[in-house]
């Protein structure tokens, strides 16, 4: 009984405040990312590395066309650059004058995630690592979270891929990473910031009674990126490269509009104005005018 009322009282006092007021759950880490769109060449290595690391099923042409693809990380490509030449794309007879713009989109690990509160069974929730986790085995597949993700970065197992004619015919099954569940049909999944690598690094650090070092965790996409456009690290670690990059770009968590001294800085978060508070910072693409 005491625990009940104690917990309820604690619930009132500790947790009624939002993160801005500092009344939030104590974070062990706050994993964040910086993606330099000027360095990103759109080569797709990250996406394939993600398939390899995270046991993502390939679906084939028909299902892909039906938009049932499973990629956690998609590299989007746009031909217009409204900030530089608005409307340039409208002249159908002209040729492209610049290259395309590439945008690697993985789960933005929002700190005020829109997917979390709507899950009926709390299969998606916020971890003390600042991650937007998905517990596959708890998921019942209501797909509300995916509807509510403004980034459309949640993918659903519309089919079973574990059969022999599925995504991993023998012996391809042998490649599956045992550190990650192979998701069953009817389960939502998404980018986890390679939580298995984070977990391994944290376990290792704990075994050695130390903190996780910067650069100790590398996500699969970051590790393979040929131009090193992706940076990953702990935003609570003031010495990490990611924190420094966020500071340099004067972008802070917990805000939907950054008050920056220098408006020409390149850092921005996609759909920041929706107040989802994403953990992925993009650096604007640079173009010669």
């Amino acid at each position: 009984m005491s625990s009940l009322f104690g917990n309820i009282l604690k619930g009132w006092t500790d947790y009624t405040k939002g993160i801005e007021e500092g009344g939030h759950h104590k974070y062990e880490h706050m994993w964040g990312m910086v993606i330099d769109l000027d360095k990103c060449t759109g080569c797709n290595a990250c996406s394939v590395a993600c398939y390899a690391e995270n046991n993502i099923a390939t679906v084939g042409e028909e299902k892909y066309k039906a938009r049932q693809s499973m990629q956690w990380l998609r590299v989007e490509r746009y031909f217009d650059e409204p900030d530089i030449d608005p409307g340039a794309i409208d002249d159908e007879n002209a040729m492209q004058e610049r290259g395309a713009s590439f945008l690697p989109m993985m789960c933005q690990q929002c700190n005020a995630a829109t997917c979390e509160p709507v899950c009926p069974v709390a299969a998606t929730y916020h971890t003390p690592d600042g991650l937007n986790a998905q517990i596959y085995n708890r998921c019942i597949g209501s797909r509300y979270c995916a509807n509510n993700c403004p980034y459309r970065l949640r993918v659903f197992n519309f089919y079973s891929y574990t059969d022999e004619d599925g995504a991993w015919p023998e012996p391809m099954k042998q490649q599956l990473n045992p550190d990650i569940t192979v998701r069953e049909k009817g389960v939502m999944e998404k980018c986890t910031f390679c939580i298995q690598r984070i977990r391994a690094a944290k376990d290792k650090a704990k075994m050695e009674n130390r903190k996780v070092k910067d650069d100790e965790v590398k996500t699969a996409c970051q590790q393979t990126c040929p131009t090193q456009a992706i940076m990953f690290g702990d935003l609570l670690n003031s010495e990490s490269k990611v924190t420094q990059a966020w500071e340099r770009q004067q972008v802070k968590l917990g805000k939907y509009k950054q008050d920056r001294e220098n408006p020409k800085l390149r850092g921005y978060r996609v759909f920041e104005e929706l107040n989802t508070d994403p953990s992925v910072l993009y650096l604007e693409r640079v173009r010669e005018e």
Partner: peptide, 22 residues
């Protein structure tokens, strides 16, 4: 295709900055 659209439709997805400003 991965995407059926080629444009950002006014969303700030890939923001661009001119090299001079950068």
């Amino acid at each position: 295709k991965l995407m059926e659209i080629d444009r950002q439709h006014g969303r700030k997805l890939v923001a661009t900055i001119s090299a001079d400003k950068q």
